[in-house]
Design a binder for these strands. Sequence first.
DNA 1: TTTAACTTGTGAATTCGTTCACAAGCCGGG
DNA 2: CCCGGCTTGTGAACGAATTCACAAGTTAAA
Lengths: 208, 208
Amino acid sequence: MAKRIADSTVRRLSAYLRFLEDFESRGLETISSEELAQRGGTTSAQVRKDLSFFGSFGKRGLGYSVPELAGRLREILGLGKEWKVIIIGAGKIGAALAQYRGFRQRGFLILAAYDANEEKIGRKLEGIPVRDITQLERDVRQDRPDIAVLTVPAEEAQRVLDRVVKTGIKAILNFAPTQLQAPADVTVKTVNMAMELEGLSYALTNRD
Amino acid sequence: MAKRIADSTVRRLSAYLRFLEDFESRGLETISSEELAQRGGTTSAQVRKDLSFFGSFGKRGLGYSVPELAGRLREILGLGKEWKVIIIGAGKIGAALAQYRGFRQRGFLILAAYDANEEKIGRKLEGIPVRDITQLERDVRQDRPDIAVLTVPAEEAQRVLDRVVKTGIKAILNFAPTQLQAPADVTVKTVNMAMELEGLSYALTNRD
DNA sequence: TTTAACTTGTGAATTCGTTCACAAGCCGGG
DNA sequence: CCCGGCTTGTGAACGAATTCACAAGTTAAA
């Protein structure tokens, strides 16, 4: 890949793909950058610029072919293959994720959940086996998951992350409300609800 | 408030507060911008700039008083008062949120959850009453919640949001993986897991 | 074939956020 | 009381992301 693409750009591509799939299911053939922009809360210039990093997919005067652009976006985002996911922490959030149909829909296959609690080990979490966290390293060697989702308490998050990194997993989705340190070749995305809530609190407090 | 503060700045303030609380509990008196920066994965100049938007809280040569800065940040973020929250959608994610202790800890009081499913109405979700969604408008007039958390399917999210906005609620935390349209005076924050996952997929696919 | 109405792709201009760099201020030790 | 070591607060420089603006290409209709 020639240029480094900003995180915000990738997020928008992801949003565009969602609208395209909606358009696709309604049988529409073409879409303009303006239509795409309105649905995504951005501008048509932004849409065109975002896409231009990866090539030129549109036809001047006409717009973009919906199926073609959707296909190209899936390719760019790496959604062509199946990604194997493990969930670490079989609590309430882990359970909510385990049943989330968005995973499977987009090609993310959840292999297993891990926990230290003996009462949970051996059971199923929304159909997904809960395994003993002590087996993590052995299982990873065998199953080769691509992504680990962390739903453990904040206090344990860094320790668990270090362990996960050591197994060679390069992508982590963290739900613990804490900043994590990881090597540069490991991508960590954090979903921090506490932060979002405080953002709302700030907005409510500082109105014009 | 004189200047418009960037979203990214508010998120960092929220992160700083978390470290400060950690420092506070360990009985430390002062902290430098450098220490704060290291924990938050940013730079000391960034920390100082962020804080400078709101005044000057530090002592040159010494750093910041931990309790004082924590207090000022809570004030800035509007965490001094108790915010009343309702959850709309009593599914798995709603349940996970209902039991999330981070809410209460930071002064967010969950009043109730709402659902259309008769089997859920009247029961409790992690100790929180599940009410009939048809009563939403009446309840809001009475209870005056500040924040609504949306954990409904993507297809219904916009419709539910419109209804919530009409009741006068000005802050919404959305968990549906969809872009929502709201009036300018309503703040909507979306936690979009699908987007984060696709960000990981992109990162795994486009390595150097 | 010509024209009018559209829409893309992209350099240039602009805006916004981050980093640099340093004067100003504080503290402790001699 | 003065000096050396530290750390803040903040303009200025920089860099990144967004928006502007327009040439170039497409289509449809006359």
